[in-house]
């Protein structure tokens, strides 16, 4: 039953994806700056014939609606076209970079949740205590601190001064790792490469903290406020009146209900992680999708930008679908 509903939701995502495709296509064309001009600007002497040849190669000489149709039909076949600048299939380029981005996003999410849950719960249980006030001040800082600045700060402290953690990249230059999935941590485990595992984990720490700080802050605040509400509820009072201990009253009866709004926010954070990664990837020299997209935007590399945006959109839709499925487990009142 649930599976059928999930499939239905996946089908419902198709029109959303088409909408995203059309919009990103149009916006790229509306942006000033012509891809061929930008490419030629670096080439020195170019003939008009050569420009014409490139335009027709990229299909830029065709009318807009025809270009859009080509793009959409390509998508249906799973073909996102060739990158203008890199002269390679967009799918291939994205597939190379995506594992790095996902690895970073997962690391950031893990850090965010590991920090947010204890803080959110303890702050609610000890409302207005020193712990609560300090945590909430920290959370405020976490929300308001721009990631590029936090990243630089962390590099200065932990890499430059303390020399505990590496400054840049995904893995030490001297470490050899056979790539299997593209996820370095996973690959290290799969190939039983201890050295690579340690190196890739060490490289993952600072970017994850930088990207996950905002997640931790937002989730902690939401969890705290929903925990506060649940702790005051009658069912927690009943749990205590039944003879439940403090731990059971908080961790079972209150938390279970406080998770419902929290999961929604965590789902939305996936978008924040994808958006924020461009900056964090730049700061930490992380070879992920974010930097690829930024470069592609500046080069007006239409197919690459379109392809990357499609991947972002799909990730976001999928994350929210997962949240909705989780919801049905957490909140028995809701059916999919």
């Amino acid at each position: 039953m649930r599976l059928v509903k999930i499939l239905e939701r996946l089908l419902a995502a198709i029109p959303i994806m088409i909408g995203v495709a059309v919009i990103v296509f149009l916006f790229m064309r509306l942006t000033p700056g012509d891809p061929v001009d930008i490419m030629m600007g670096q080439g020195g002497m170019v003939t008009a014939g050569e420009i014409e040849r490139l335009r027709s190669e990229f299909n830029l000489d065709k009318p807009l609606h025809e270009q859009l149709a080509l793009f959409l039909f390509g998508l249906l076949r799973g073909d996102m076209g060739n990158s203008f600048t890199k002269q390679r299939p967009v799918a291939q380029l994205i597939a190379e970079r995506l594992p790095a981005t996902i690895e970073l996003a997962l690391g950031a999410m893990l850090f965010g949740l590991l920090v947010a849950f204890p803080i959110g719960i303890i702050s609610a249980v000890r409302q207005n205590s020193l712990t609560d006030r300090l945590s909430m001040a920290g959370a405020f800082l976490g929300i308001s601190m721009p990631p590029f600045w936090l990243g630089i700060l962390l590099i200065l402290i932990f890499s430059v001064h303390l020399k505990w953690l590496p400054v840049q990249g995904r893995i030490g230059a001297d470490v050899h790792l056979t790539t299997v999935t593209g996820f370095y941590v996973l690959d290290s485990i799969l190939t039983g490469n201890r050295e690579a595992l340690i190196s890739s984990l060490r490289h993952l720490v600072l970017p994850s903290v930088t990207l996950g700080a905002a997640v931790a802050a937002i989730v902690a605040r939401v969890l705290r406020s929903s925990m506060l509400e649940c702790l005051r509820s009658d069912y927690v009072k009943l749990a205590r009146a039944k003879g439940a201990g403090e731990f059971s009253a908080v961790a079972k009866h209150a938390l279970r209900n406080a998770l419902i709004p929290t999961v929604t926010v965590v789902g939305l954070q996936v978008g924040v992680l994808l958006g924020g990664n461009m900056i964090v990837e730049a700061v930490f020299g992380w070879p992920g999708l974010g930097r690829l997209v930024v470069d592609a935007i500046f080069a007006r590399d239409f197919p690459l930008v379109q392809g990357a945006v499609m991947v972002y959109a799909f990730t976001f839709v999928a994350a929210n679908l997962i949240v909705d499925v989780l919801y049905t487990y957490l909140n028995p009142k809701i059916e999919m």
Binding site: Y235, K237, L330
Partner: peptide, 10 residues
């Protein structure tokens, strides 16, 4: 109030 006293999640 039985509705608010029973835990909605269990």
């Amino acid at each position: 109030d039985p509705l608010s006293t029973l835990n909605p999640a269990f």
